[in-house]
Design a protein around this nucleic acid. Structure first.
Lengths: 181, 181
DNA sequence: CGACCATGTGATAGTCACTATCATATGAGA
DNA sequence: TCTCATATGATAGTGACTATCACATGGTCG
């Protein structure tokens, strides 16, 4: 399915997301349209599909055990992002550019972001870093937003400086918020 | 168009969102399908359509002038939400239940949430409550998430206690985040 | 080796959201 | 009354998505 995604990205970049039908992608990749729907679930997810979320959560629970939550989260996320940065930088940027240029995809991407919020909230609650579900939701939401802001800033400069630098800057802003802004 | 939305909510509650076609809604409301698409833009927005966002932003810029950002925002949003609570409580709950029960709508709703983030960021930046775009994005994201968490908690108890109470609780959690969790 | 079963694939047909376009009705202003 | 602008309805078309079918593959038994 990696091949299908590659072909699709090529076509989307060349002709625009809306102008490329799933059927055309199927033909370009040498598979049937039904196969694409079976594996990805929908046109949007051909672009959005990745395997990063588990990687983000890996080590998060451990890190929460021996440091104040905000610092622990920043360190764990920073490490995970550094790995992605090293491994898949080009592909992430390609996909992000297509998403950015297309309202339909931005909407689907926002849903992913929601899922990340919920996932962080769950981890925080289970690790005892949040005392109740409301606190978990607030913490998870704030952290996911910070992560997203860092990612957008990273994309805005074309991925020049490492993601972890942007993440550190974003977290510094977050700590200022409660201090009175 | 209010009538169209009412009819649509009736049908969605009775048969389920996916089971009701736009054509059926059009017929039930005594209009043509084209009219619905013209006014709402898509099936999802028949449910999500409202006029609340400007109300949320009203007075926000003013409040930011004479108080620390977090307190000012909490007060301004609290006032706006109290008004909605008094005016449209039933309809908001109806719509939220339909959204909650339907992945397709949750996705579209997440996109709305994104827009709220961006809107808050813009206000904060213009009012000088954020010193740079990254800070504005982080603040706006954190606050929008807090607002959403409060709204979900409010819905979870069926709208029994006022939204402003949940909002106050959520903001208290947010201030704890930077203090070390 | 051949029979059996499971999973993944291709192909067909059908539904429905959404778009584009045209003719018509309604309502305001000269 | 004539005119123009805007809103509506109707029609036809595209394409995403969902069945459901038959077929190929690959592994496990007898």
């Amino acid at each position: 399915m990696r091949r299908v995604q590659e072909r699709a990205l090529d076509l989307f970049e060349a002709y625009g997301y809306a102008q490329v039908s799933v059927e055309a992608i199927a033909e370009a990749a040498g598979v049937g349209p039904a196969t694409i729907y079976r594996n990805f679930g929908g046109k949007e997810r051909i672009v959005l599909w990745d395997e990063y979320d588990p990687l983000l959560f890996a080590g998060l629970a451990d890190a929460l055990a021996d440091a104040p939550p905000l610092a622990a989260i920043q360190r764990a996320l920073g490490r995970a992002l550094a790995e992605l940065y090293a491994r898949d930088r080009e592909r992430i940027i390609r996909r992000a550019r297509i998403v950015e240029a297309n309202p339909e995809l931005r909407q689907a991407s926002a849903a992913n972001q929601e899922a990340l919020r919920a996932g962080l909230a769950e981890v925080l609650l289970k690790a005892g870093a949040a005392r109740d579900p409301l606190e978990a939701a607030v913490f998870g939401g704030a952290i996911a937003s910070t992560l997203e802001a860092a990612a957008l800033a990273w994309l805005a400069d074309g991925g020049a400086s490492p993601l972890s630098r942007h993440l550190a800057m974003a977290f510094r802003r977050l700590t200022r918020l409660c201090a009175g802004g």
